[in-house]
Amino acid sequence: MEILSVLNLGDFPHTFSKLGMFPVFDVAYYIVSILYLKYEPGSVEVSRRSPVASWLCAMLYCFGSYILADIMLGSSPIDYFQHNSHIVLASAVWYLIFYCPLNLFYKCVAFLPVKLVLVALKEVVRTRKIAAGVHHAHHAYHHGFIIMVIVGYVKGSGVALISNFEQLLRGIWRPETNEILNMSFPTKASLYGAILFTLQEAHWLPVSKSTLILLFTIFMATSKVVMTARHSHGSPFTLVESWVCHLLFGSSLGGSEDDHHHAAAPSPAPKSKEELSDGTRKRKAKKAE
């Protein structure tokens, strides 16, 4: 008997887990991904100077997780590009966001109420990708639990993990945005989600996969919508991570009070990729005014 059977969700989790992602959810995923690409410094200039480089960057933002996961599992890195409908759809979104007359499409999808809906839909796709990655790795390596976690993690946050390579296509090198050194909330959540789905796949978690997909989707969508609405780049995991780091490693993410007293001139924490992008957008807005 499942622990969560008391929720009496009926067949809704199963129906939700079987819900098709194409085209509505996938379009939302492509829109938000390429929207974040346009926020990146220099991306608009690259789209004017080299549309091919801009298109390649957009494809990495949309399909980077599939490419990286295929490489790790020994498949061709261009295998996903056989899905013509997805490539055409993502290319159309890229063209509209960067080249639509009067920037109308960008203004519509960047409008906060619309953006919040799109962000929530994107997290539905992210959860499915994590679950699919773990399931795929389970078939290839039945007892390779670490491999399952890694593949699920890559499927959920592969775009961020190869962001430095994508920057090279735009002629930019910013090692301070390395996602391993400065993990954002989606990257951390993808890792924790991959662990949960691996435990479920190994039958160590007394929850059905459909129920776990539903609950994790609700958590991810709610967290991202709230963070986007508040323009926040924090993480709901910070408090727990600080306690665990202090318990296991003798340090905390935020540093203790004694550390501040003994540090003569503490250096500022490196900004995340989203914080750097926000600063660039604010400077551009001030110049426009």
Rank of each mutant, 00 (worst) to 15 (best):
V6L: 09
V6D: 01
L9M: 10
D11E: 12
P13R: 02
H14E: 14
T15G: 09
F16V: 04
M21Y: 09
P23A: 12
V24G: 05
G42N: 09
G42H: 08
V44E: 14
S47M: 05
R49W: 05
P51K: 14
Y61F: 15
Y61W: 10
S65K: 02
I71N: 10
S75V: 01
I87F: 13
V88S: 11
I97P: 00
F111T: 08
L112E: 10
P113V: 06
V114Y: 10
L118K: 04
L121P: 02
K122H: 11
T127F: 03
I147M: 12
I147C: 11
M148S: 06
I150V: 15
G152R: 04
G152I: 08
G152W: 04
Y153Q: 12
K155R: 15
L161M: 15
Q167D: 15
L169A: 09
G171L: 08
P175F: 12
I180K: 02
M183R: 02
K188G: 06
K188Q: 10
L191Y: 05
L191P: 00
T198W: 04
A202G: 02
T211S: 07
L212Q: 01
I213R: 00
F219A: 08
A221D: 04
V225R: 00
V225P: 01
V226R: 06
V226I: 14
A229I: 02
A229G: 11
H233P: 02
H233E: 08
L239E: 13
D258Y: 07
S267H: 11
K271Y: 01
S272I: 06
K286S: 02
K286G: 00
K287M: 00
